[in-house]
């Protein structure tokens, strides 16, 4: 898209007063978004004695990184006192394959359902999208029994399968709404030239799909990383995911609460997701711009 036609240029506020307003509104929104983070960071830096005696929200009188250190490698989670650090690997070996697999399948589905509009394609799309709304708590038991029947009970492969399948409705939705805007002439032309289904997919669709693929990766990685219901049901002991370990650390009901540790631990547990945001963030917005596909 030529720069002089960029719509954001066309409508961008230019008057100084308007621009000042713009930053004020963004600033207020930013404060709203940052308030809980501020509470969490401040709490994580206070000693627990101070939190107990001086109240739960407050400016630290003593700054300490003890809670961060404990959350990373010292805190006891049940009978193991190694903090969250041992569990990151478990989450990564589940989240990375499941994210990639569900994104790839979502792309294939979106492509097949928009560019090869065989009879019933729309009905299938609706069928898949309705999967977004399945209340997962209700299907935990049949899911466990099915995995067991497949020989995948209590294994990371079972979890990868579950996360991939329940991610498909969303990833298919993303890719469908992206590909619907890709001019069909491109596909038709390739078809005329004798390219088959898979060649068109890999040579034409995949190269223009990076932006939406990044949206899908962000969505799936975030969701899988933080998933608890299946994660807790289908992993054991040392193979637990970070989210399950975090839950075990912070979600005690009858035990003594260590709010500083809770906050530090949750921020540490979120780091890989934030890294993914930073890693793909730039790529994915710039990519989408470059894609400049008509809606």
């Amino acid at each position: 898209m030529p720069a002089d036609l960029n719509p954001s240029e066309m409508v961008a506020a230019r008057r100084p007063a308007t621009r000042a307003m713009l930053y004020v509104v963004l600033g207020i929104l930013g404060l709203f978004f940052l308030a809980p983070l501020a509470v969490m960071v401040l709490t994580s830096l206070r000693p627990i004695e101070e939190i107990r005696s001086a109240g739960i929200i407050g400016i630290p009188q003593t700054l300490t990184l003890d809670a961060w250190r404990a959350a990373w490698s010292q805190a006891c989670i049940a009978a193991v006192c190694e903090g969250l650090q041992p569990y990151f690997r478990n989450s990564l070996v589940i989240a990375i394959p499941a994210t990639l697999l569900s994104t790839l399948l979502g792309a294939i589905n979106g492509y097949a359902l928009t560019k090869f509009r065989f009879p019933g394609a729309d009905a299938i799309m609706v069928l898949i999208i309705l999967g977004c709304f399945l209340p997962l708590q209700a299907v935990l038991i049949p899911a466990a029994q099915t995995l067991s029947a497949l020989g995948l009970a209590n294994s990371i492969y079972g979890l990868i399968l579950i996360y991939t399948v329940y991610g498909l409705p969303f990833t298919t939705l993303f890719f469908r709404n992206y590909y619907v805007g890709v001019p069909s002439e491109i596909v038709r032309a390739a078809h005329m030239d004798g390219a088959g289904f898979w060649r068109i997919f890999f040579q034409i669709m995949v190269p223009i799909s990076w932006p939406i693929a990044m949206v899908s990766v962000v969505f799936q990685f975030t969701g899988i990383w933080n998933e608890f219901l299946f994660g807790v049901s289908f992993t054991t002991g040392a193979s637990q995911t970070v989210t399950v370990a975090l839950n075990n650390l912070v979600n005690t009901t009858f035990g003594v609460k260590q709010y500083n540790l809770d906050m530090a631990a949750s921020l540490i547990a979120a780091l890989p997701v934030l890294i993914v945001y930073l890693f793909v963030g730039r790529f994915f917005v710039r990519g989408l711009t470059a894609g400049s596909i008509k809606g």
């Binding site: 933080n226 839950n247 949750s266 921020l267 945001y277």
Partner: peptide, 9 residues
């Protein structure tokens, strides 16, 4: 960032 941090906390 809010999407990244566990809702439990």
């Amino acid at each position: 960032y809010p999407a990244a941090v566990s809702l439990i906390v």
